[in-house]
Design a protein around this nucleic acid. Structure first.
Lengths: 327, 327
DNA sequence: GTGAAAGCGCTAACAA
DNA sequence: TTGTTAGCGCTTTCAC
């Protein structure tokens, strides 16, 4: 019942185990005819090399982990699922196995997972990073930077994203732009917040403190905040939201107040998630190529694993505004 | 530079490797004081048992795969991400490692992945299943059933979901209900389709062939179909859509025609995805507990792995209508 | 181009 | 309760 081993193949094909091994991992080093005999025996026995034994002998596992570092809420939102997909694709094509988990769950398990690298997506905690470094596991950060560590990180061009959004609104004639900021990871929140301030300044717009609102990360919270904003006598005509969910909240609030978009209120979101095309009017949003971010993460990990020394520390992925009918 | 091994710990703590091994895998079989000494030595050396070596010796890997079987489009939509999350959670708590991939990518890699079980989500192809069985890998199906095989499968109660949706519409006074069917996996499509026919009959509603529309799985396709439907002189007052994306398409089309929801048109979706609460009006939809489905998948796999013989073949997860303002 | 044999780090009889 | 030791299936020198 147990699986055939290299010994079985060796016996059946009449060559040594060393040759069988080579036939599978360095085919060019074994003579054509021999190789053929090995393959025939192998397929007759339905043999496949054991990844475990191979890892054991080679002292490497070709295994890397993708950990979502995010407290609460659903684990795989669309954005992280996109990064995950990019990582997965690239991992598969590079013959790496991908373990997917959350940072929380990962840490609960004491046993070493024998991974060679870890991609931490989101708000990676310093102690987790330190732990990996102690175990000599290569680390790459996605959508986050961790000041204390010298690690490759893949981030989106937050500043440019916000700038594009605001420029578009300005081009539509808006001068007074409100911002609805959500509580995301500390990095994203502060980055996007500062980008807003900087872009407003760059565009020569006056900043009204009262038109900067904070809310949680759910739509309902956004609806509340937006209602307060839109109820004001001198309400803003344009709103930039931290992501599409919040933007949807703003649109809901606007609808309930009977406002027509984009004429009476312009709304721009962020992430260009699938919901943008489900709303009416469709939501103008900043597109982030999260799959690409995932691929880059894998590229950085493999570079580190190959001992490359000049791996880029900070890779900024360009973003672009997708103009639709909400603004 | 290389990691400490069980020999290092054995030497430092002055006990045999067997005892060290036991201290980690069967703590109760080693005396308190000895155990303590082992742990001290281990942590002094920063030792962690190698999962590879353990797998090699034990002849088991504690590794299972979650494969998304779905052609095209994005790999991890919200529904599958939910199942994946459930599987992940349970896998972590049971100390299994989870490899996540797509069926396509998986098959491209010849080397054996040494998994003990595979959870196939979606449209699992018979040849893939057969291949796993040949390799003695346990298989469980999620959101799918494969007639040719005797496998545990976890599915949602499609029939009841549709019935609840239609009952609700009937309770609202609707008699003439249209259906917008999308091309999903063959199983889901036919299941939901037949459920509609059966439920209509059960509720004593007359079935008008012309009010059953097919479309692709994207919102735009749904908008087109819905427009054709709503442009008719004798247009329906209620639409049941195969999922929330299609329902959103219907709402878009309705909006563009100036129809007011739910008074002039009632819409019900399926899946209760996050978009339901982002739309205005919020979308009434059939809630499917996909995380639960994922957990059940893991439970079935572990039952199989433990050699249990009476593992349920067909587990139907209950669903429930979430009534909101669209119908 | 191929073979012999020594590991890789751990587990599980079996013995003490 | 603890120790001895023979594997687990493969890779990789080092010979030939």
């Amino acid at each position: 019942m147990s699986n055939p081993t290299i010994y079985d193949v060796s016996r059946l094909s009449g060559v040594s185990t060393a040759t069988v091994s080579r036939a599978f991992s360095e085919p060019e080093r074994v003579r054509e005819t021999t190789r053929r005999r090995v393959y025939e025996a192998a397929s007759a026995l339905n043999y496949q090399p054991s990844a475990i034994a191979r890892a054991m002998a080679r002292q490497r596992t070709d295994k890397i982990a993708f950990l979502i570092c995010k407290k609460g809420a659903t684990i795989l939102d669309e954005f992280y699922a996109g990064i995950c997909e990019g990582v997965m694709r690239r991992a598969n094509s590079l013959d790496y196995q991908l373990i997917v988990s959350t940072a929380e769950d990962w840490q609960r398990i004491p046993q070493s997972k024998q991974i060679e690298g870890a991609i931490l997506a989101g708000d990676a905690q310093p102690d987790l990073i330190a732990e990996f470094q102690r175990q000599n596991v290569k680390v790459v950060l996605a959508n986050h930077v961790s000041p204390g560590f010298d690690l490759p990180c893949i981030i989106a061009d937050e500043y440019d994203g916000v700038r594009q959004a605001l420029s578009h609104l300005v081009a539509q004639g808006h001068r007074q732009i409100a911002m609805l900021a959500g509580r995301f990871s500390s990095y994203i929140t502060s980055e996007r917040y500062n980008a807003f301030l900087a872009a407003m300044k760059e565009l020569g717009l006056s900043l009204d403190e009262s038109s900067i609102l904070m809310c949680e990360r759910d739509a309902e919270s956004a609806v509340q905040a937006a209602r307060a904003l839109l109820d004001r006598p001198n309400r803003p005509r344009a709103v930039f939201a931290f992501n599409d969910v919040l933007a949807a909240g703003v649109i809901k609030a606007a609808r309930r107040l009977g406002l027509r978009l984009p004429d009476e209120l312009a709304v721009v979101g962020y992430d260009d998630s699938s919901v943008c095309q489900l709303l009416e009017p469709e939501l103008t949003s900043v597109h982030v190529d999260c799959r690409r971010m995932g691929e880059l993460c894998m590229d950085r990990i493999t570079a580190l694993l190959h001992g490359e020394t000049d791996v880029p520390r900070r890779t900024v992925v360009p973003v672009s505004l997708r103009v639709r009918s909400s603004a």
